[in-house]
């Protein structure tokens, strides 16, 4: 008998508490778990530490949590499309760490994979170097970058089954497969929900073993659906 991970969204986001570290899938407006982000806004939590590609796109995404005063730190690589996030940083209301995109995904990948960190050539000679140990391998300089693990992760998938196997579509895959591995409690919002056995096992991008809860995505977000 398959374990049914489909639960009401309120129950899923109740796992998020103040001060927790939250990892988010999505890239600008692509594959962003907006249903979960909006459900979280109804929770009385604050001082969140967020790991995400960006601050959102326009009025959507992380920027909504920032405007609601729920975020203490944001670790990301781009806030160019969300001026409100930049203003929060300038005002001292939000702590920002710039993390180059490839380093960011690898930090989350290592966190999910039980690794302690990695050596990266990216950021050598820039402000990213600060606080990083340098290591030389075969004559090339690398920064020793840390692994990151979150308390809770939100991802968005095109299709998912009740045991948490996930399939993504197009460029909405982006961070989602990796973010699905990097937290103690992983919640997936799915545009289409299936029973166990209905998804082609060859087409699963994220195995259900990584996923703790599955909720229905609001398909009105991210544009018109097929």
């Amino acid at each position: 008998m398959a374990l049914n991970k489909m639960i009401p969204i309120e129950e899923a986001v109740a796992r998020v508490e103040s001060g927790m570290t939250l990892a988010l899938g999505g890239f600008l407006g692509q594959g962003v778990p907006l249903t979960l982000i909006r459900a979280l806004k109804a929770r009385p939590v604050h001082d969140l530490v967020i790991w995400s590609n960006d601050g959102g796109y326009g009025d959507d995404g992380v920027v909504e949590l920032v405007k609601a005063g729920m975020v203490r730190e944001l670790h990301c690589c781009h806030i160019g499309y969300t001026p409100a996030v930049g203003r929060a940083v300038e005002a001292g209301d939000l702590e920002l760490e710039w993390v180059p995109q490839g380093n960011l995904i690898e930090m989350l990948r290592c966190g999910g994979a039980g690794l302690g960190g990695f050596l990266t050539p990216v950021g050598v000679g820039t402000a990213v170097e600060e606080g990083h140990q340098k290591v030389t391998v075969n004559g090339r300089t690398y920064l020793w970058e840390r692994a990151v693990r979150a308390d809770v992760a939100f991802v968005r998938a095109h299709a998912g089954d009740i045991v948490g196997n996930l399939c993504f579509r197009g460029t909405a895959r982006n961070y989602n497969t990796t973010v699905a591995t990097c937290a103690d409690y992983v919640i997936a919002e799915v545009e289409h929900a299936y029973s166990a056995g209905e998804l082609d096992p060859e087409k699963v991008h994220a195995p259900g073993v990584f996923v703790d809860a599955v909720v229905r995505a609001d398909v009105s977000y991210c544009g018109v659906r097929r």
Partner: peptide, 16 residues
């Protein structure tokens, strides 16, 4: 000064 955009993937791209 006064405008934070972010490097996105640019740091990785120029290094790689």
């Amino acid at each position: 000064p006064g405008r934070k955009i972010g490097m996105g993937g640019a740091m990785d791209l120029v290094a790689g």
